[in-house]
Write a protein that binds this DNA or RNA. Structure first.
Lengths: 221, 221
DNA sequence: ATTTTATGAATGATTATTCATTCATAAAAC
DNA sequence: GTTTTATGAATGAATAATCATTCATAAAAT
């Protein structure tokens, strides 16, 4: 414990009355993520959330005004958390290949790629068409990550003197590939695991930038 | 009109009392798809659905027993519809390359890839962790399509004598790529269009099987 | 005439929100 | 150091609103 640098709630929370506002909010948001994953966006109730958090019924309205706003803040929290993870991966020592590897490890890490969180992401995506605020938050995070990936692919193509006709196309594929693998992990956890997903990504990178990436041991099964 | 061979509701439906059971069900399912896309799974009501269908409140319970069952049948309907589309694409005249092109055209066709339907797919995926029946329906359709794609990639690699080290890896990428592009089209419709998505797929195929696929005119912008 | 299909007002269950009250903590007074 | 007062976070019973479902009635089909 104490190893994580950001978004930590564990401590202080149990001393009932002493937790700061921000801590309470984070605690409730984490309970929300768990509940949405377990019961789905369409059937979570305030009672579920507050029970999961070990607090009383009125607490969400006290800290977030309404259930709706709690959900928006939950999405915002997840977006920021993911954004920070991307940022940290991009700050990895080394060239574009090392950064790309770090990005991949992050995208399929236990923290980012747990089925609970995937379920919540998909739930928000599924409601994004009807809730503009969801859509803009989701679009922002996706577009930012996408832009970084494009830069990385261009750099790597240049630095490695690969002279690919269209590195941007490879970058676009990479981005969609990651998202698609999340879906597979969510709905076919027996068929697709985080490790398998990484192997697929690795294989893809090796086929484009053979001098920078090794083929994974095995792709199949 | 009358061009579609399956899943057609337009006719007969307006003559209030004459529609057959199956037609009524299809009519309600279509209304459900529209409502879920417009309001989200978490806030659609029976009133929304029946109003959209131009029918009365009790009608869903008459034909589906409950709202829950209507939603399950909606997912089943969409799965079958997609499964049939895949089947038709695979029945295209020609070799694996032609079939792959047909599959791609289908996956990004106006019918399959409309944002309304994408929103509904994502909503169901988002609830799949909490509703086993959703999960099994979603997993089934995904795994079937995936298996077909793997066969196609293997055939094409063999027929074209490409001797790729791991055609299965390319197939896995293809599958996830398609799903990831759907997400981009759903949440960033200004950044990603159906046409752009097709160009990305086409570029990917051209990079793997250059003698069978041409590079698209342009990928960027 | 009988059966099937549809209606929509009424019902009852669920659930978000409100708010009077409690109580832990801290500041002020002594 | 002890007691008093003030603060505002937390509680949860009560309220009010929403919404799925039922069912008596009617219309249409056979």
């Amino acid at each position: 414990m104490g190893r994580n640098t950001e978004k930590d709630t564990e401590s202080l929370v149990n001393s009932k009355r002493s937790a700061s506002k921000e801590m309470r909010r984070a605690q409730l948001i984490k309970a929300t993520i768990k509940c949405v994953a377990q019961k789905g966006l369409s059937s979570i109730t305030m009672a579920d959330i507050t029970k999961e958090a070990g607090l009383s019924l009125g607490i969400v309205n006290l800290h977030f005004q309404s259930k709706d706003k709690l959900l928006v803040e939950t999405l915002r929290y997840m977006s920021e958390e993911y954004g920070e993870s991307v940022h940290r991966a991009l700050a990895t020592e080394g060239g574009p290949a090392a950064k790309l590897t770090a990005l991949m490890e992050m995208d399929f890490s236990a923290k980012v790629c747990q089925r609970n969180k995937l379920a919540v992401w998909f739930a928000f995506w599924g409601e994004s068409k009807s809730r503009p605020i969801y859509q803009s938050l989701c679009a922002k995070i996706d577009e930012d990550a996408n832009a970084s990936v494009h830069t990385l692919f261009q750099q790597l193509d240049k630095d490695g003197d690969y002279q690919h006709i269209d590195p941007d196309n490879f970058a676009s594929v990479w981005n969609a590939l990651t998202e698609g693998l999340w879906l597979d992990i969510l709905i076919s956890p027996n068929e697709m695991t985080r490790e398998k997903a990484k192997a697929i990504c690795q294989g893809y990178l090796a086929s484009i930038f053979p001098r920078h990436f090794e083929r994974p041991r095995k792709t199949k099964n």
